[in-house]
Every structure is written in C-alpha cells, then in structure tokens.
C-alpha cells in the first residue's frame, strides 16, 4: 500500500457561511434507522452506519446508495485515511475493518476480528495517516498500523468504557475520554499517560436509578490547537427517561484548564458530535427529546448564537470538507444534508 497522502489543511470557505441561514437541502432514506455518518475527505460520499448492521454509502453527486456489509453489529465509528480512499469502520461487534471507500462494490480489505472486547466506540486517524486509534468498552485505547493492521500499542488506564478518541494535530499525542468524564492525554511515542483532564460534569451517577450516564461522547481540537472541546450531556435528572441537556466543555490545551462551558438551556438532548468549523465557531450535532438540532457557539461564549432545528432527532453528524454542508444521521432512517448558508435564489 502506498503512503497515505497528508490530510488537507482546514481552510475556511471562500465565502463565509451563515449558520443563521442553515437549511436542509437533501434527504436520503434508508430502510433502517441510522446511527452514524461521515463525509469522506475528498467530499465525494457520505457514509452512514445503520441499525441493520450495514454501512450505507451515498454518492453526493448522484444520490446512488451502496451497502457495505462486514459487521455483525451496529457501526458507530467511521474514519478515513487522509487521501479518502480507505474507509475504516469500527463496530459494536469489536471488529475493525478497512474498506476501499470508492469501490463500486466495496468488500473488506482487512478485518481485525476482535480489535476490542466489546464495542468499538470511536476511531481516529493520525495526521500523517500512518496510525489508527480505536477505543471501546474494554476500557482500552489501541493504536494500529494503518498499513498492515498490526497492533502498535495499547493504552490502558481508563476506569470505564472509553467513548471517544482523537489524535492531537501535532501527531505526538492521543486523547481519549470515558464514561466517567475522565480525559487521558497519552504520549504516542511511549504510551505514557501525560496528564488527565477532568470533564466530570459530563458524567452523572443517578443514585435512584443506580446508573452511570453521560460520558465524553465527542471531542475536537481547534484548528490552532489551542482548545480541546469535549461534548456530551449534563443535567441528567432522569437518565432512563432522556431528561438531560447538551454540554460542551472547552479546555485550554496548554494549561489543561477549563476555559468555557457551552450550554443549550431549554433544549433536551445529548451532543453526539462537536466540531470546530474552519471559520472558528463550534458546531454541535444533538438529538434528544427536544428533537434534532445543529448548535452553533462562538468559542468565547457560553450560549449558542444559532440553534437550527432538524426535521428529526439526530444521532451523529459531520462537516463536509467544503465547510458548507453538514450531514446528519437520523432515527427516522434519513440521512440529511444541510447547508450553512442562504438558500439558493433566496
């Protein structure tokens, strides 16, 4: 396999987006509820995991749908090598699978049958495309060689399920977050734990129901590497009944201190994904009893400056490489594309 290409540097759209003008432009329906979605780095496709255990690929130009079948459970984790030609999927069956992203009929290139004991919760690819990080319900983070699927390193130390993982843009560190709201900052070269950050407000233990709930559901590093945003939920007064609100905790990466909490009062749901838009604002994708929403925060502000209501509860989302389109995976079996700008012709 040739060396993966370097990831495209994030660039702001030539014309600024306008989140206040966000609107849905495309709805594609599948036969099963969707649980995850990602654009490929070249912006040709959007892939979505479904409750029928398949991954569905839609061609953004034609809307053609292709199924990728290689898991025995739901696929919540999707990632790409930087050139966009290789898709990685991590399933609740513990499998890690490599796919030819653009093949007419994709079949697995490589499968690690038990990458984790239990669910794979998240995947990330190193900036140089050489390494893959996975995390899951075995409380572990594992680092894999992207070229041959060999296990490179195992990072043990979380006390609960690991919900999210990312590579720091420097390529030197891996960051992982767990159910208990603990964030571990690992040195990639040695596997040593550098430090822990406390995102405890993202975890709730509800004694009456005897359940742990919440966790670091999503993380993102700002494009200038100054901030680490960790998302999930708080105010979980009734975890079993879906009563909670989204929360983002933004940390100063250098200091390791909490910089700002981004909240969404009067909306009930969980933040499934947080992203830094190239224009600098924070984009959140949330779903819950308050429906599905796209949330927009300025990094220095606590309250959203735009909250866009989606037609149905969202379970995951992604930002297109063009910075103007957002894909969302929905419980009503639809994959939706929204544009962060004024409607054409309006």
């Amino acid at each position: 396999m040739s060396e993966p290409a370097q990831p495209p540097a994030p660039t702001a759209p030539a014309t600024a987006t306008d989140p206040a003008q966000t609107h849905v432009v495309t709805q594609w329906e599948h036969s099963s509820p969707l649980v995850s979605c990602r654009f490929d780095p070249q912006g040709r496709f959007v892939f979505a995991g479904a409750e029928d255990m398949t991954v569905q690929r839609w061609n953004l130009g034609t809307g053609a749908k292709t199924a990728l079948a290689g898991h025995e459970s739901w696929v919540r984790s999707l990632a790409f090598l930087p050139d966009g030609e290789t898709l990685l999927t991590g399933g609740y069956d513990g499998r890690l699978v490599w796919w030819p992203a653009a093949a007419e009929t994709p079949t697995p290139i490589r499968t690690v049958p038990t990458a984790h004991a239990g669910w794979i919760r998240a995947l990330a690819v190193s900036p140089d495309g050489k390494l893959i990080a996975s995390c899951g319900n075995d409380n572990l983070v594992r680092i894999w060689n992207a070229a041959d699927g060999q296990l490179v390193r195992e990072l043990a130390g979380h006390a609960s399920h690991v919900y999210s993982v990312l590579f720091h843009p420097s390529g030197e560190f891996v960051v992982s977050g767990d159910l208990l709201g603990q964030i571990h900052h690992w040195d990639l070269a040695t596997g040593a734990l550098v430090r822990k950050l406390d995102a405890g407000p993202l975890h709730t233990y509800e004694g009456g129901q005897a359940v742990h709930f919440g966790g670091v559901r999503t993380m993102a590093v700002s494009h200038d590497s100054k901030w680490l945003a960790c998302g999930g939920l708080h105010k979980a007064t009734n975890p079993l009944g879906a009563v909670h609100e989204p929360l983002v905790l933004s940390f100063d990466w250098s200091a390791g201190s909490l910089f700002k909490s981004q909240v969404t009062p009067e909306y009930a749901g969980v933040l499934w994904r947080v992203l830094y838009h190239p224009e600098g604002y924070l984009l959140g994708i949330a779903g819950g009893s308050g429906g599905g929403v796209l949330l927009f925060w300025k990094p220095e502000e606590e309250q959203t400056f735009v909250k866009f209501g989606l037609p149905n509860l969202a379970r995951d989302g992604d930002l297109h490489p063009d910075g103007r389109q957002v894909a969302t995976a929905h419980s009503d079996r639809h994959l939706r594309i929204s544009r962060l700008e004024k409607k054409a012709g309006a």
Binding site: G208, Q209, A210, V211, F213, P239, L240, G241, A242
Partner: peptide, 12 residues
C-alpha cells in the same frame, strides 16, 4: 435496579 430503559437501553 434499574431496567426501565426508555433512553439508551443498550448502554444501560
């Protein structure tokens, strides 16, 4: 207790 999982049944 508790299995009354109207929300996130699988995690709980």
């Amino acid at each position: 207790s508790n299995y009354d999982t109207h929300n996130e049944n699988f995690d709980f």
